[in-house]
Design a protein around this nucleic acid. Structure first.
Lengths: 267, 267
DNA sequence: TAGTGGTCTAGACCACCGT
DNA sequence: CGGTGGTCTAGACCACTAA
């Protein structure tokens, strides 16, 4: 029977869990509470990106629940992209250091891309135009959930695909966490920006929201992206969140969609 | 133990299922086979959109498996949006006739929309400019997986939000299924286009792929959307699929993103 | 071979819904 | 109240990986 308080021979951690009961209106199922505990461990850095977390059987023992309950919690976290299951090996904390998930957040693909094919085998080059400390504008502050005038790190860069400039973007990072970030470090780093943030700034981007618009290129934007002035560009504003729905990056990118498009799936 | 062929006292349908075994390289887990059988029933129209499907216990008996196995199959189909579970009532076939999911495929929201809020309480008006039979062009044919020159139904329409024209799109429907569709029917129908297709043309759109680009408005497009010529517009090409990954609609829409934006979530 | 996640079962009880 | 999906358990065996 499922009556935790009475029958379960649970170790310490389980005592935090609340029994299901009609008397408790703010009831949350066990597996969801387990999910919360695991998420907390991820936030606290108990298990770091790329690392192996304890086995299901182990977690079940620790939490004083059945393996099936842990399984359901881990299943959902894996579906949300926080964890990665590998049969025979164990469950790992997701990371941006992985060939598999290199371009998880960049939805731009060459027009030639065939459906179902893995896109972007194109050579990609990055040019960092700027990396400086600045004061948050009204807009940037509101988006990042900080106060206007607070310090942010701003990066301005250009992405080139097959030698052609395709993306021009400004990136805003809140707070003092990124104070040590320099243009030199950006230049020398091989791999995705989010992998760098993860390894050296303890900030893992978990999910993001994007707003897309079409805009006419300004003179400066046109020059950088080598298009005519007033040519249509895709404006992509991205707000990325770290663990716990914490806004951790705001990005404003202009995409030249003459030979590339933004790919999306609707379900 | 789990040895179907020997121990299960299964009714007829279960005999189609294949036992798991190392000897069978093309092995698929039971719940996935169940999923396939349910999907087939949906395709065949055994259970129509909006209808109640048999209970888990019932399906388990029919297929000769445990309720847990059926549950896993239904869980996945619900996650994919094919089924809708309602506690205490049963499991229903998803439909486009539902307040909840009215704008599942239209990602355009007003700029004022606050995160987490339900968008589009705006009054929406539709103007159908055209509805005719035509021959598929090279491009349309290739996209829909038919031969160039075959008959398609073409709809041209305008969407107005808060009185302003915001979307101008051409819609292409393959084959003879939509031969009976007329401009009058489109005008008189209340509710989403996909609901009409579902009720009267036995075509349910299950998922879609979109390609987004920014383009400069032509003279005609500018006039229809009431913007300046060459103003940037968001071009959205959508390929919708019915049950069984069947391409069922191709749509080419131009969005005026001056006061609206295309909203997307990245996980 | 030992340990991991993946599948499957059987059975219990709970939360929710309509009658 | 009976029927539905939702949660939880305990235990079995399979598939995969690494030592």
């Amino acid at each position: 029977m499922h009556d935790m308080m009475a029958t379960r021979t649970a170790p310490d951690p389980a005592s935090e869990l609340q029994a299901a009961s009609a008397a408790n209106p703010s009831f949350s199922p066990l597996y969801r509470q387990i999910k919360g505990l695991i998420t907390r461990s991820l936030q606290q850095g108990d298990w770091k990106p790329g690392e192996l977390i304890p086995s299901e059987a182990d977690l079940a023992r620790r939490f004083g629940v059945s393996q099936g309950t842990v399984r359901k919690a881990v299943d959902e976290l894996a579906a949300e992209g926080l964890l990665l299951r590998r049969q025979g090996r164990g469950t790992f904390v997701s990371t941006h250091h992985e060939e598999r998930v290199k371009f998880r957040f960049l939805r731009l693909v060459p027009d030639a891309t065939v459906e179902g094919e893995r896109p972007l085998p194109q050579p990609m080059e990055r040019q960092f135009l700027e990396c400086r400390r600045a004061r948050a504008s009204q807009e940037v502050a509101r988006t990042l959930g900080i106060k206007a005038g607070e310090s942010v790190t701003q990066i301005r860069r250009l992405l080139l695909l097959a030698g052609e400039p395709v993306v021009f973007e400004d990136i805003y990072l809140p707070g003092p966490a990124f104070r040590a970030l320099t243009a030199e470090r950006l230049e020398s780093y091989r791999g995705p920006l989010y992998a760098l943030f993860e390894s050296e700034f303890s900030t893992r981007m978990v999910r993001a929201e994007e707003k897309l618009r079409a805009v006419n290129a300004s003179a400066q934007e046109a020059q950088l992206l080598r298009v005519r002035e007033a040519e249509a560009l895709l404006l992509v504003e991205r707000l990325s969140f770290s663990y716990g729905e914490l806004p951790a990056e705001y990005r404003r990118g202009l995409y030249n969609t003459r030979h590339h498009h933004y790919r999306n799936e609707l379900n």
